[in-house]
Design a binder for these strands. Sequence first.
DNA 1: TTCTAATAGGATAATTTTGTCCGATTTAAG
DNA 2: CTTAAATCGGACAAAATTATCCTATTAGAA
Lengths: 144, 144
Amino acid sequence: MFSKACEYGLRAATYIAMQSLDGRRVSLKEIADKIDSPIAFTAKILQLLSKNNIVESVKGAYGGFEISRTQMDKLKLSAIVDAIDGDTIYAGCGLGLKECNADKPCPVHSKFVDIRNDLREMLENTSLYEMTAGLEVGLTFLKR
Amino acid sequence: MFSKACEYGLRAATYIAMQSLDGRRVSLKEIADKIDSPIAFTAKILQLLSKNNIVESVKGAYGGFEISRTQMDKLKLSAIVDAIDGDTIYAGCGLGLKECNADKPCPVHSKFVDIRNDLREMLENTSLYEMTAGLEVGLTFLKR
DNA sequence: TTCTAATAGGATAATTTTGTCCGATTTAAG
DNA sequence: CTTAAATCGGACAAAATTATCCTATTAGAA
């Protein structure tokens, strides 16, 4: 459903947010370790998220990544998915039919529309804070 | 959502079924042309569908692909997706979380379950015949 | 100032997916 | 029997995604 890059991005953002709630800025190394992702690849994804103002990066010694409390409240999962995967999840006919649209729908068109709308709605209505709050039970939880 | 291979497979099967309804056996060349897919790649996919008894292939001169009327009634889209993409669409947590399950769900777990169930249900309840019947309006429709 | 720990970013590599090529095989028709 | 039209299947190639490596840059602390 999502690319690997996007999954890593969602997990990374979630972990950063969780630690930021405790006032801890976290390093790339720690993030990759905790979310069980390849470190250098995760670095690329975090660069992307940083450029999209989704996470804040701090260079140099004692640097790392963090997310402000206001940001994790405002930020929806859809913003993360959008930054990494774009709108590919929602785009076009589910079966790849070119001329399938509301005017000339394929037999499963409306079902696909419903399913994708549910997905979009979920992503647009879930903030990163809600995500982290629901996960506070255990740290190892973010491991893939 | 589906791989390219799977989209081609669904379109190819749909086109074959449509033509079979008119008693026409169709060649690989015609299929690839009509569904706008790479011919050699489509051949591989049709081999796979043939091995999975989803379409019937006839070798030699005047050969090609066809699907019997009883088969297109029985066959659900889920069988095609399963043959090509396996169960990757339904498998695991949507965010790639390892220990995310019904016992210890992530905040979006149940939403993902719902969305995937809707998808599965649609695929399992739509026969290839229904698919073709809904498309009989126009042939060019299958072009991607 | 210098050292050290950290992110930034470009180049490269491995893997997977997508796509192509070509010879072998099959089968109907002449 | 020969030929032509078709699928089968193995090897190969290209493109996209995933992943790694290395150097540059940044910034805090001694």
